[in-house]
Every structure is written in C-alpha cells, then in structure tokens.
C-alpha cells in the first residue's frame, strides 16, 4: 500500500508499460536472431542454439508477461516441474528408440500395407 501512483492493485502485481514494451522488443529481436542464425550452417550447434534462443524467449514470456517473477514461487516450481517431466519423457523415449532403431522393420514387404 506504499505505492505513490494509482498503478497499484491490491490483489496482484501490476506490470509497468515500459517492461511490457521492453520484453516485446526483446522477443522480436530474438526472433530475428534465431532466423538469422538459421541461415548459417553451424553443424551440430544448429539445434542447440535454436533451442537456447527459444528458451530465453520462453523465460522472458514466463517472467514478465506471465508475472512469474512477482508471483508466488510455488507457481513457478509447479511449472518447472511440469517441464522436467516433459524432458524425462522425451529423453527416455529417445534413448530407447535410438537403441532399437536398427531392428525396426518399417516399410518392409512383410509389414501389412495401408488399407
């Protein structure tokens, strides 16, 4: 209740216009960056760089547009735990499918053809 202007709300944090516009600008710049990076062949760093930029964008959206920085910490924990489970799912599935890939019979003659 120590706020000087009327830019205050009793139930939740109010995001200043400057921050909103700043995050918007940063997101646009990062989108440009990821497109620009993709025009260069960086070999196996292609994917990691694209993912890093996407993650930075995602963190910006989460922290400011979604108010996570000013929100209850627990909401952030819930969200991050959800993402960790996604990573768990992806990594174990990729590990296993990669290992049996050579034994998979796909498009082989004895596989029943599509109706």
């Amino acid at each position: 209740m120590t706020d000087n202007h009327d830019h205050h709300n009793e139930l939740a944090h109010v995001m200043p216009v400057k921050v909103l516009l700043g995050v918007f600008g940063a997101l646009l710049v990062l989108t440009g960056a990821t497109v620009w990076v993709a025009t260069h062949d960086l070999g196996r760093f292609d994917l990691s760089l694209a993912l890093i930029i996407a993650t930075v964008k995602a963190v910006l959206v989460a922290l400011y547009f979604m108010h996570l920085r000013y929100d209850k910490v627990f909401n952030a924990i819930v969200f991050v735990v959800g993402i960790l489970f996604v990573i768990l799912f992806i990594s174990l599935a990729v590990m296993d499918t990669g290992n049996y890939q050579s034994q998979l019979l796909r498009n082989a003659d004895h596989v029943i053809r599509y109706r």
């Binding site: 799912f89 174990l92 599935a93 499918t97 049996y100 796909r106 498009n107 596989v111 029943i112 599509y114």
Partner: peptide, 23 residues
C-alpha cells in the same frame, strides 16, 4: 488419416505407441 507416427506400414514406429501409452 494415416500420419505415419505409429503405423509401421506408413513408416511409423509401433513401439513408440507403447512408450506413450505406458508413460
């Protein structure tokens, strides 16, 4: 449709379904 993700006759991986289902 036949999106070719699980159906081996369309290039899909039927075991992937089991990973999904049991997750």
């Amino acid at each position: 449709l036949g999106v070719g993700i699980f159906d081996p006759s369309l290039g899909g991986d039927p075991l992937l379904y089991q990973h999904f289902f049991w997750f």
